[in-house]
């Protein structure tokens, strides 16, 4: 693990901790822009640091740890798309993004349909789209990758109430946005490759969110077990409870190891990068959800009170399971990869 990575982690943790629980978007986003977090994975030719997702996931772990609302993952994916665009279509938008104007990317499955001259479709789970200057999305089958300016005609943004309130969830509906009002970032082979890159990195980002959130929630739970006394002794002395937190720590440690292994596979462009990223997302979000489920139980009544942050982790953990690729489809994709190996 590089020293740089540890510095990045320490810096991110400080920023997030100073931003409250949950870490507010207003406090984290401007600092993230100022500290150049978006430059982490951007190629040097684009003024970035040219580092890999092995480093970037550390940031997303820390944001997850602090339940942060800042749309860093979505913005990092947008930067990836704009930097990889054909000709210079994305250049001016990339400048705006790096200057701090968020560009939104959906974190759930979903694609646009190209009907006649227009782009249509409904995209769910687009973080902070209401405050974004544009949206990056792709058409079905990854035929083309588009940037749709926020002020293009026929773009409607809703803010449906999600149980997870730590992130500013929006739904974006395009009702026949004229192609002339949108920017095509890539088509054909290039679009397919970019969309693949985005979906794989999105899975890493959500896995990182889960790893970080799970670690923080485990710490809160351990603290509760150490301090809460019943029957004249701390709960932490009951072996039945100790074993349950030991299991959580084990699952989270494995998820973290797999996340970093998957990020390394993605950075190295290894042939198994896809599968590792899907596996990392499945394992990490399952571990986070299990940790959240157990944390609520181990906290007892206090966890059911809205003042306690337990429920914020629970709601975020349960939603993470559904983000960055429907888990049933990902599990099927991995299972089929094993079946192909079986010959």
């Amino acid at each position: 693990m590089s020293e740089y990575r540890e510095e990045l982690r320490a810096s991110a943790r400080k920023v997030v901790e100073d931003a409250g629980t949950p870490a507010s978007e207003g406090a984290v986003w401007p600092v993230a822009v100022e500290l150049g977090w978006l430059l982490t994975t951007l190629p040097e030719a684009r003024g970035g640091l040219g580092l890999g997702w092995g480093d970037a996931v550390v940031l997303h772990e820390e944001l997850g740890r602090g339940l942060a609302g800042a749309p860093l993952l979505s913005a990092a994916l947008a930067a990836e798309a704009l930097a990889g665009a054909e000709n210079e279509a994305g250049a001016s938008w990339l400048e705006r993004l790096l200057a701090g104007e968020p560009i939104a990317v959906p974190l759930a499955d979903g694609a646009l349909a190209a009907e006649g001259d227009g782009l249509s479709g409904r995209l769910e789970a687009v973080p902070s789209a209401a405050g974004a200057c544009a949206l990056v999305a792709w058409t079905e089958g990854a035929e083309a990758l588009w940037l749709i300016p926020r002020d293009a005609p026929a773009v409607a943004i809703e803010t449906p109430p999600y149980w997870d309130e730590t992130r500013a969830w929006c739904a974006v509906e395009l009702r026949g946005v004229p192609r002339s009002a949108a920017v095509v970032l890539a088509r054909g082979e290039r679009a397919a490759r970019l969309v693949e890159a985005l979906t794989v990195r999105r899975a890493l980002g959500i896995a990182a969110d889960a790893v970080g959130g799970g670690a923080q929630l485990l710490e809160l739970t351990l603290e509760h077990l150490r301090t809460r006394r019943q029957f004249g002794r701390p709960l932490a002395l009951f072996q039945a409870l100790k074993h349950r937190v030991a299991d959580l720590a084990t699952e989270l440690a494995a998820a973290e190891a797999l996340l970093h292994e998957a990020a390394a596979a993605v950075d190295a462009g290894r042939a198994d990068a896809f599968r590792r990223a899907w596996e990392a997302k499945l394992v990490a979000t399952a571990a986070y959800a299990r940790c959240a489920e157990e944390a609520l139980q181990l906290h007892g009544g206090i966890g059911m009170a809205v003042e306690h942050p337990c429920h914020l982790f629970l709601k975020r953990a349960l939603l993470d399971v559904e983000l960055a690729g429907d888990p049933e489809s990902l599990a099927l994709a991995v299972g089929d990869a094993v079946l192909r190996e079986a010959g």
Partner: peptide, 27 residues
């Protein structure tokens, strides 16, 4: 049973767990 998507998903989920075990040992 190779056409059964439920079984194939269970295989995928286990493969993910095995990948995690391997990553943890390597780490």
């Amino acid at each position: 049973l190779a056409e059964d998507p439920g079984m194939r998903r269970d295989l995928g989920r286990l493969a993910a767990r095995v990948a995690a075990a391997r990553a943890l040992a390597d780490q």
